[in-house]
Design a protein around this nucleic acid. Structure first.
Lengths: 126, 126
DNA sequence: CTGTATCCGAGAGGATACTG
DNA sequence: CAGTATCCTCTCGGATACAG
């Protein structure tokens, strides 16, 4: 089920791409994906960069991102082990798209806030 | 807190725009926003279009979308009442941006799936 | 028809401790 | 250093019943 009579292009989204869509739009992944944007990062670097995400979630998400081919995981067999994560082309592409969204938010935020104020004002009288 | 040392442009996102971002990326809103894309829709029309979202969530989300100025709510004072929801310019703009994302998913989905298969294959041996 | 109120279960995600 | 395991809370979202 889920979205039957909706415009095409959406239907496409909510079946095969559903999984991917949810990955992208959940809280953790975006934040984490942003982290290695300027070059590969070690586990603890990502953790510090994101700050506010537990290690449990972090490793979980990193695994997911790997599995979807958005980042790569490189292990250097030494003691202590060094593991670094880097964006793939796919991941970069996604970030590019998300820039569209963050850009839109940046541009329109003021309008949205204005709308909120108007809405609240209306509520006040009525 | 939340994202301190991250690249600029992100910081912008995760403070004032945070609220808006979360609205956009939660499950209900997107689906619901898509519904009145081809013209105003009544409450039950939206409900039928989305199918899989409870009335509780639906009315809640519609209210939020209203408050953020993404849709308008028009009440026709009759018995029984007729209420219709329509996209605003702001809402249309957002949908336009989201098309970017759905488009990307559409184009790259195959690559993502391929990456998954590769990942799983590697896991098999190792 | 258009909602609001109430209840409830599943799952996301945080904190902490421990292992290779 | 790089995780995994465990526990636990808290919010999201579904189902249902009822009101204007």
């Amino acid at each position: 089920m889920l979205v039957g009579q909706n415009p095409a292009g959406l239907a496409m989204l909510f079946c095969p791409g559903r999984d991917l869509f949810e990955l992208i739009t959940s809280r953790g992944p975006l934040l984490i994906l942003w982290s290695p944007r300027d070059g590969p990062q070690r586990f603890y670097e990502v953790r510090n960069a994101v700050e506010g995400t537990s290690e449990r979630v972090l490793s979980e998400v990193l695994k997911k991102l790997c599995r979807h081919g958005l980042i790569t995981r490189h292990v250097e067999p030494s003691v202590p082990p060094k593991v670094s994560y880097a964006l793939t082309g796919l991941g970069e592409g996604l970030l590019g798209i998300m820039d569209g969204l963050t850009g839109w938010i940046g541009r329109e935020l003021e309008n949205v806030e204005a709308a909120k104020r108007r809405y609240n004002a209306q509520e006040g009288m009525a």
